[in-house]
Amino acid sequence: MLIRKLNPGETPPWELLELADPCRIIVEGYIKSSTIYVGEESGEAIAVYVLKETLKVVVEIMNVAVHEDFQGKGLGKQLISHAIEEASKRGYAQLEIGTGNSSIHQLKLYQQCGFRIVGVDFDYFTRSYDELIYENGLLCRDMIRLCYTFES
């Protein structure tokens, strides 16, 4: 998979972005001030992640998704590794990510990639989204916050 920065004026891969975050209004809010990276196979967008600077020394992965037909092939790990590399090259001290309490596979992946759980935003999903989200047979209620700290 080739991972590249989305060019200015290029249409974001909405289908992929909405896989990770079903509320288009929320996604539109954060992509305006973010950098979008697209993973492609044969010129087709099959994966995406979004980096947003939140503090001068902190950047956050706001969205990460792999098309359902390509899941389970290690592409998510490639995206996270690429994000870590990009954040390091850009000189950030920390890379953050948040995911739902019900996102069992993502929680495992992020920790395998070196992220550590640093907090919980209780009821984030139930207060931020109009519709309830269920995943892996669980109500997605709380946002689990994780952080990757770069060696200084």
Rank of each mutant, 00 (worst) to 15 (best):
M1W: 01
M1R: 05
M1E: 10
L2A: 11
I3P: 02
R4W: 01
K5R: 14
P8W: 11
G9W: 15
T11P: 05
P13Q: 10
W14G: 02
W14Y: 06
L19E: 15
A20E: 08
C23Q: 13
R24M: 04
I26C: 05
E28H: 10
Y30W: 02
I31Q: 07
K32I: 05
T35H: 07
I36S: 01
Y37H: 06
Y37W: 10
G39H: 01
E41T: 07
E44L: 11
E44A: 11
Y49T: 00
V50R: 00
L51P: 00
E53D: 06
T54K: 12
V57W: 08
V59L: 06
V59Y: 00
N63F: 00
A65V: 00
A65Y: 00
H67Y: 04
H67P: 04
E68A: 11
E68D: 14
E68L: 08
D69R: 15
K73S: 07
K73M: 10
K73Q: 15
G74Y: 05
L75M: 13
Q78P: 03
L79P: 01
I80E: 01
I80P: 01
E86S: 13
E86Y: 02
E86G: 05
K89M: 10
K89S: 12
K89Y: 12
R90K: 14
G91Y: 04
Y92R: 03
Y92Q: 04
Y92L: 07
Y92P: 00
A93Y: 08
A93G: 13
Q94H: 13
L95R: 05
E96K: 12
N101A: 12
S102R: 03
S103A: 15
S103R: 01
S103T: 02
I104N: 14
Q106Y: 02
L107T: 02
K108V: 09
K108N: 12
L109K: 04
L109I: 02
L109C: 06
Q111W: 06
Q112P: 02
G114N: 11
F115Q: 01
F115H: 01
R116N: 15
G119P: 01
G119A: 09
G119Y: 05
V120Q: 07
F122K: 14
D123R: 07
D123G: 08
F125R: 02
T126A: 12
R127L: 14
S128Q: 09
Y129K: 04
D130Q: 13
E135V: 05
N136T: 08
G137E: 08
L138C: 08
L139N: 03
R145K: 15
R145S: 07
L146V: 02
C147E: 15
Y148C: 04
F150Y: 11
E151V: 10
E151T: 09
E151L: 12
